[in-house]
Design a protein around this nucleic acid. Structure first.
Length: 847
RNA sequence: GGGGACGUGGCGGAACCGGUAGACGCAGCGGACUUAAAAUCCGUUGGCCACAAGGCCGUGAGGGUUCGAGUCCCUCCGUCCCCACCA
């Protein structure tokens, strides 16, 4: 029998699947539906092994669910707008559209070679007007609802990419793509009112029981709900006052100052009146241009000379400061400072010699002796030095302070969120145009539905920084649809995260004239299993939940949660190698030798000794990238799929090694040799031998099924290895062997689909394994004839007894007591108690 | 500074509910086949003691709960991730 030849087998079966259309999702099917989706790729140029792992996982689920009788939707598309296309345009003078579509063609071909069971008839790219046109219609609906609005505000400006970024796209004060320190600029921008849904997005997390706890927690923290008090401190010598927000109204009597942000309207007014304040505000705005600087900066402030009156005791006056550490866009942009019980306030008070007055007495402390030194006290305790709150604990005092402030009309209990509205304007040329015009007479006017899509023009000039749409000679000049007068188009485009926040709904019917085909979406949504990287925990995954809620409000979809199940997969890493001079070297040019347990790497050509580095995320800069095409050439794609799913749990990183993929390749050859071989009938013991094999088979069916359902693909593959070994060493022939082979072909199909088809055909089965039902586990056949129960004496294993499965406690007790070896062990000991766990273990307790 | 996760052989990891720790793979060692190598197949592989039978130790460290702890609780150490002047 010929060796298994993936180069011949794999393309043949891919062609057969395509021809038979076996992966097409059915409309009007009476099977239950199952929607499995992997986060769609950005068409960067080529597929990498990380993609391969991600899509292989989704494919395992899709093939498994199909075999289990579901009508499966497993589509693919392209998140195709974004900066790399503009950079390519700038560097090489190509059209972004041409560059993007060429990449899509390449990557579609590469994805195809992975043997994924995708319904390609639903493919789309977000950069095509067929997609972004409907998206513009959605944007106009959000605008009518007031969910999309324009405002002037402080925004994150990326000075390298020359565009505004959302808060979620600023990582440690730097742009998420450019890594440049982000500046604060005041600009008029489009925002989506995600804050309207802050509470609902938070509450909805509770129902997402098939989401990782980690992601839910990250979203919860990102939304950042806190409850407290909005409270006005009245000015001492004029009318009006300054409103602060606090979560610690119980410490109000410990207040020693009020401070406002340099961007606060009061700061602006005082800056005009008072030269010292003016200089300070100017300094903050200049020096504080980048967030990186702000975070590193020392706490600084200036006393404005203005006084306010303590709301609970009019005999107390407090100074008003302007301080650089107060955020304008959280709470009210103003605080009261209580140095004894807040570390930042304490640092500030020590620097400027402001009073430190403790009002929370820690348990066990003496009021006369307690002092705050270097560390503010933020723990629980009893309130003192606080008038009407004296003697209360912290929680009771909070309630009392809120009640008092509300009764006096000084303030209101308030819930505040850390979440800000989503800034979606981007000063970029390769994105979805925001479909509005600016009319000198009518203001901002939405483009009428009949004029959609607002198409991107060809021939944009990307050779200079800045927005090419804004400097296009004609594109922006148009007329106002309201008054007919001359008007200019909006030249900002939408954040590409808008594109990806509803694409899953478009897959329900990507050809629909309306943005979302409601009937199709009602059938397919929510996505049953979504798979992607954890880096989107507070970006894409939060935006998509918000947009789905907004769409529900418009009656466009019937669900509020887009993704019922979420799985976040780990990355593929590879060991790194470098020369003595520090230069990185490609793994293809490295030979690794084992010397006992140590490993030594040398240059395959020169023999130069190399330094073996950590296994890291594959990156061009470290040259530790292995391309899927390379792997497929050497081992076949099934071996690669099997390996990326086998070595580590799917949510953890997996280390790519050639030894590992060789192991997977060995399994494939072992499986094929089983199907290729004829097994001779053996003499004697036929019944027992067949029963043994059937037991192995039915256990494998159960174990693999449970592992796949539980997303433990590594365990599923381990069980397949075991099953193959057991099958190959079993002498059984005839029906039992056929049953085992038939089960094996179907169990391995989600992982190594091409091999499985070849085996299935060899078995002489009808049709394709891609359409075959999942094997069914029969518990009666899987059952042991007898169980071996370890017998422990005082927790240490001292022997074993054999008992029929399900043996009663009395039976087992008798077996144990009758066992001579155990009796010998018990000599000189007093048996006090025997614990029998059915079919598991026995423990004898002596004393 | 706040929040969270994780520490198991030489390596990746398994043990899903508290019930034989180390499945499966990799690497290693020994053997078969071969003129030889590769491939393949078989055996072996946590540590210590022992000729052996067997014994003792062992899931980051220390304590606790339990007949029984990798798993639950407390303290500590280490690593990683998220957020971060959020009042």
């Amino acid at each position: 029998m010929a060796l298994y030849n993936p180069k011949e087998v794999e393309p043949r079966w891919r062609a057969a699947w395509a021809e038979a259309g076996v992966f097409r999702a059915q409309t009007g099917s009476d099977k239950p539906k199952y929607y499995v989706l992997e986060m769609f790729p950005y068409p960067s140029g080529h597929l990498h092994v990380g993609h391969a792992r991600n899509y292989a996982m989704g494919d395992v689920v899709a093939r498994f669910k199909r075999a289990r009788g579901f009508n499966v939707l497993h589509p693919m598309g392209w998140d195709a707008f974004g900066l790399p296309a503009e950079n390519a345009a700038a560097e090489r003078g190509v059209e972004p559209a041409a560059w993007t579509h060429a990449n899509i063609d390449t990557m579609r071909e590469e994805l195809g070679r992975l043997g994924l069971s995708i319904d390609w008839s639903r493919e789309f790219a977000t950069c095509d007007a067929d997609y972004y046109g409907p998206q513009q219609a959605l944007f106009l609906k959000l605008m009518e609802r007031g969910l999309a609005y324009r405002k002037e505000g402080l925004v994150n400006w990326d000075p390298v990419d020359m565009t505004v970024l959302a808060n979620e796209q600023v990582i440690d004060g730097r742009g998420w793509r450019s890594d440049a320190p982000v500046e604060r600029r005041k600009l008029t921008q489009w925002f989506l009112r995600i804050t309207d849904y802050a509470d609902d997005l938070l509450a909805g997390l509770e129902g997402l029981d098939r989401w990782p706890a980690k992601v839910k927690l990250m979203q919860e923290n990102w939304i950042g709900r806190s409850t407290g008090l909005r409270l006005t401190f009245a000015f001492a010598s004029e009318s009006g006052g300054v409103e602060v927000y606090t979560t610690r109204p119980d410490t109000l009597f410990g207040a020693s100052f009020v401070a406002v942000s340099p961007y606060h309207p009061l700061a602006e007014r005082l800056a005009a009146e008072n030269p010292a304040a003016g200089a300070f505000v100017a300094e903050c705005r200049r020096g504080g241009a980048s967030q990186v600087d702000i975070e590193a900066a020392e706490k600084l402030g200036v006393d404005t000379g203005l006084k306010v009156v303590h709301p609970f005791d009019s005999s107390i006056e407090l100074p008003v400061w302007i301080a650089n550490f107060i955020l304008m866009d959280y709470g009210t942009g103003a605080i009261f400072g209580c140095p004894a019980h807040d570390q930042r306030d304490l640092d500030f008070a020590r620097k400027y010699d402001l009073p430190v007055k403790p009002v929370v007495l820690p348990p066990g402390e003496d009021a006369a002796l307690f002092h705050v030194k270097q560390d503010a006290y933020i723990g629980p305790g009893r309130i003192y030095n606080s008038g009407f709150m004296d003697g209360l604990d912290v929680e009771a005092a909070k309630a009392a302070a809120v009640a008092r402030a509300q009764a006096a009309g000084q303030g209101q209990g308030a819930t505040v969120y850390r979440l800000r509205d989503w800034g979606v304007s981007r000063q970029r040329g390769w994105g979805c145009p925001i479909p509005v015009v600016h009319c000198p007479a009518c203001g901002v006017v939405g483009v009428p539905p009949d004029d959609l899509p607002v198409r991107l023009p060809e021939g944009l000039d990307f050779s200079r920084p800045g927005n090419p749409l804004a400097r296009h000679p004609t594109w922006k000049y148009t007329v106002c649809s309201d008054c007919g007068g001359p008007a200019e188009r909006e030249t900002d485009t939408l954040d590409t995260f808008v594109d990806s926040s509803w694409y899953f709904a478009r897959f329900a019917n990507p050809a629909a004239a309306e943005p979302i085909d409601r009937a199709a979406a009602d059938y397919w949504l929510p996505v049953d299993q979504y798979i992607g990287g954890i880096e989107h925990a507070v970006l894409h995954l939060l935006y998509a939940r918000f947009i789905t809620r907004a769409l529900k409000g418009e009656g466009l979809v019937g669900v509020v949660e887009p993704f019922a199940g979420l799985f976040t997969q780990g990355m593929v890493t590879h060991e790194t190698y470098r020369r003595q001079n520090g230069e990185w070297i490609d793994p293809a040019g490295v030979e690794v030798h084992a010397e006992g347990t140590a490993r030594r790497a040398v240059d395959a050509v020169t023999g130069e000794a190399l330094i073996i580095g950590d296994s890291e995320k594959m990156s061009k800069s470290k040259r530790n990238v292995v391309a899927p095409a390379q792997i497929a050439d050497a081992y076949g794609i099934d071996a690669a799929r099997l390996f990326v799913l086998s070595d580590s749990p799917p949510d953890r990183d997996v280390q790519w090694t050639s030894a590992g993929v060789e192991g997977a390749s060995r399994l494939i050859n072992r499986v094929w040799s089983e199907f290729a071989a004829e097994v001779e009938e053996r003499d004697g013991n036929e019944e027992a031998v067949a029963a043994d094999l059937r037991r192995v088979t039915h256990r494998a069916i159960l174990a693999v099924t449970e592992a796949v359902e539980g997303f433990r693909f590594n365990s599923a593959v381990a069980r397949l290895y075991e099953f193959v070994s057991a099958l190959k060493t079993s002498p059984a022939a005839g029906a039992a062997r056929h049953e085992a082979r038939s089960a094996l072909a179907r169990l391995i199909a989600p992982f190594a689909p091409h091999l499985a088809e070849e085996c299935w055909r060899r078995l002489g089965e009808d049709g394709m394994v891609a359409q075959a039902p999942w094997p069914v586990h029969d518990p009666a056949l899987a059952r042991d004839e007898e169980k071996i129960l370890p017998v422990q004496i005082d927790g240490r294993r001292r022997g074993e007894v054999r008992a029929p499965p399900g043996a009663s406690e009395a039976q087992v007790r008798q077996l144990v007591l009758d066992d001579p070896e155990i009796a010998r062990r018990l000599e000189g000991l007093t048996l006090r108690k025997m614990i029998v766990v059915q079919d598991r273990i026995v423990n004898l307790v002596t004393g």
